[in-house]
């Protein structure tokens, strides 16, 4: 039972950006999707949440195939986008209600969970605000609350640390930890490498649309032949190596 991506080829137009990308995310595991700007992190995530259609390859979550049964697949996922985009016409309260309606969650328990999250991110007194009144960091927090209040089995988090203050980053990492304990799989794309190194269980290193290496830090260190190297050393070596070729 897990997210399985096999031989995914895809992109925005006809030119493929991703070349045979394969990896797995097990339940209760935080996997870091690591790469430079333009390496294909967001493209990968856009495919995994069904915003883009793969040219080839398969995406399966707990045995449900995204292509053949999108509705059942989407019931199991939640997503925090890189750039927070909210509905201008909906208040914060209505964004949460919309999420509850869309996932068909139980109203009362979902609101309880939401209240807790709102308190954590100090948004609980802003329920009647419109997105226009929020700062960028606050919007990002709204997106996080919306995704984390669901009972999705799999979370996709795209560059979550942009625009968050240090306290919020800390809170988010704690939330991720709680979700992991509940058996939720999380795929997080980032290029904040030292944070990733400290919190992720495994890593998938992308470069130019290809998976260069994947595994735990120890596995990566062993593969690169540098037993004490940090994630950022390993990644830089990989990326530079490609440039010299």
């Amino acid at each position: 039972m897990s997210l399985e991506v096999s031989d995914l080829v895809g992109g925005y137009s006809k030119i493929p950006v991703l070349h045979k990308v394969s990896f797995k995310v097990e339940p209760g595991e935080l996997v870091g999707l690591i790469g430079l700007n333009g390496a294909g992190k967001s493209t990968t995530i856009n495919h995994l949440i069904g915003l883009l259609k793969p040219f080839a390859g398969e995406i399966k979550l707990n045995g449900v195939n995204l292509q053949t049964d999108p509705s059942a697949y989407k019931q199991q996922i939640a997503y925090v986008p890189e750039t927070p985009i909210l509905y201008d016409e909906l208040t914060l309260r209505e964004h949460l209600q919309l999420t509850i309606n869309a996932y068909g969650l139980d109203n009362e328990t979902a609101w309880q969970r939401a209240q807790k999250l709102l308190k954590t991110f100090r948004l609980d007194n802003k329920l009647d605000w419109f997105p226009a009144d929020f700062s960028k960091g606050m919007r990002q927090k709204v997106m996080i609350v919306c995704a984390f209040m669901t009972d999705a089995k799999m979370l996709f988090v795209d560059e979550p640390f942009y625009g968050l203050d240090p306290l919020a980053v800390h809170d988010l990492l704690q939330l991720i930890d709680e979700k992991k304990k509940q058996g939720v799989g999380i795929l997080m794309s980032t290029h904040v490498l030292d944070t990733a190194q400290r919190y992720c269980d495994r890593f998938v290193l992308l470069n130019e649309g290809q998976v260069k290496v994947s595994g735990t830090l120890q596995e990566l260190q062993a593969q690169s032949g540098q037993p004490n190297a940090s994630l950022s050393d390993i990644y830089l070596q990989l990326a530079k190596g490609d440039q010299h070729e």
């Binding site: 915003l51 059942a72 019931q75 986008p81 985009i85 509905y87 999420t99 869309a102 996932y103 068909g104």
Partner: peptide, 10 residues
């Protein structure tokens, strides 16, 4: 333009 409705199971 907003991803939510594409991701929701509807």
């Amino acid at each position: 333009q907003i991803a939510f409705t594409h991701i929701y199971p509807i």
